[in-house]
Design a protein around this nucleic acid. Structure first.
Lengths: 136, 136
DNA sequence: CTAAACCCTGTAATCGTTACAGGGTCAAGT
DNA sequence: ACTTGACCCTGTAACGATTACAGGGTTTAG
């Protein structure tokens, strides 16, 4: 059975060793075997699990949600519907974030185009970024 | 000349009083006048400036970038091109984030559809979230 | 005259990570 | 053998942007 040092695991998963130790402290990763020198030795299952966590983070899940998933996965008799529901909920959130970012990017781009090479006194960006105040 | 208590400014700009005091500590907002009771009194210029900051935050700019903008705005002779460049840079970042989120949402949605009501042992979501390990 | 709704300061928590200080270990090269 | 460099360890503190809390003072309406 192969084992890996924390640095190798880091390279394989795209996390840093610090993040891996951090996840261990949080209880998201099981405590790995330790050599007589105190080094952590991970098996491929641990690498797989960390890869899962990393990927979930990329998807924008927070560690709380990931913890839910990891715990769900640890009970193989549980219904897949719970996982499915989480996924659906998260997709909805992602779509909402995308819409908001899209609007903001469009807006910023539009205002930037109004301003080319003038001096800042007439710069429209700063003006257009400033919301109207209740003009009363 | 009208002046506003911190709570009124908060309501007008959508920040909390705590955030406003925080910005003052960071030097993003000039120190306001103080009454004999120690209360902060803001004028409409300060409200405007805070509105600008708030709006930039909504746009996804971090406080460092906002600080740059605020300082640029304070030097009216500076070229508008700098502001323009910042805006362009930020739009590019936003677009990249949008693309990534889009891909991830699609992926999560696709995998969720593969899994309806089964038990977790055969759940594809967890599998598909786990990246392929170097199969060697 | 007192209770609610404000305001103040200063400090610490949040989240997910990263950095640092101050050490120990290991493999390769000279 | 010995040093160099790349790794590993622990524990603690920083980051960014806020938010919460403790422990107080002030103002306003009933």
């Amino acid at each position: 059975m192969q084992h890996y040092l924390i640095g190798e695991v880091a390279r394989q998963t795209g996390c840093t060793p610090e993040t891996i130790r951090h996840y261990e402290r949080l209880g998201l990763l099981p405590k790995p075997l330790r050599g007589s020198n105190g080094y952590r030795y991970y098996d491929s299952e641990a690498v797989r699990r960390l890869g899962f966590i990393r990927r979930c983070r990329d998807l924008g899940l927070d560690l709380g949600a990931i913890r839910e998933l990891v715990e769900l996965a640890a009970q193989p008799e549980a219904s897949c519907a719970a996982v499915d529901a989480m996924a659906a909920r998260h997709v909805a959130e992602l779509r909402a974030r995308i819409r908001a970012l899209q609007a903001l990017a469009d807006e910023l781009e539009a205002t930037a185009h109004q301003c080319r090479g003038g001096s800042i006194v007439s710069c429209r960006i700063l003006d257009s970024l400033t919301p109207e105040l209740s003009t009363r």
